[in-house]
Amino acid sequence: MKLTKVILALVAILAIAMFVGCNNQNQEQTGSTLEGKITMSGSTTVLPIAQACAEEFMNQNPKVNISVRGGGSSIGIKDIMAGTVEIGNASRDAKGKEINKAKESGIDLYQNVVANDGIAIIVNPKNTITNLTLEQIQAIYTGKYTNWNELGGPDMNIVLISRDTSSGTYEVFYEIAMKKQNIVQNCIMVASNNAAVTSVKDTPGAISYAGLGYLSSSVKPVQVNGVDPTMANVLSGKYAVARKLNMYTNGAPQGITKTFIDFILSDEGQKIVEKQGFIKVK
């Protein structure tokens, strides 16, 4: 009997607390009068950016409702063409075929670049290699080279380390660095950027890759085609293993969609982009 009373009291307190909490929130945010609904779908790489920015945007504009779905870059572009979403996320540029098809159905695929994504190729600091060409990287990961001395490095077996095939980082590496060639089967697969960095740190002969945001002094990033993997080189387009993350709209964005994309491109939005491990646009 006593227990029931205690539980009832707790429930009552909770209910009051929630009520008061809600009231407070509403009072704080009467400043914004923006209203509306945005739906978007597409690339799972852009998803964390879209999600985090949407949450912050909805916090500031409580009457706006943004729903974010995944599906992949092709789905994002397809949904824009079908007119079912306001924003289609894509981790690649729209293909010529897609742009033509959109034109036929009277839709203008408008590209809004919201972030950059770049990955660095890393080796153990003990390794004397400082530069690799894309072709060499492909030859290493398809198993054509097995010792660093074949590339002018020390006499050490190459230990291949890759991210798991379901990660977005793997996708960039597979599509841009490997040009969609299969990675050899004896390649070690690790589950996170941090695990890749740790494994390279502990293994003298290792090579791996990680998002630019995850580099630490315990591993050595190598140049690709003679270009250092830096934010500046990604922005200028010199660095090869990088890509743009896009939000496609039908024509230049308008109304609330424009406000939202402007928010992502603002300093505040770009801070969120960096927090998710990506690179700013400017």
């Binding site: 070690i188 740790t198 502990d202 293994t203 003298p204």
Partner: peptide
């Protein structure tokens, strides 16, 4: 991962501890 794998690389001369 953090102890045994690096320990084995250092002490039995294998390429990778995983």
């Amino acid at each position: 991962m953090a102890f045994l794998a690096p320990f084995l690389i250092r002490n039995i001369g294998i390429d990778s501890g995983l």
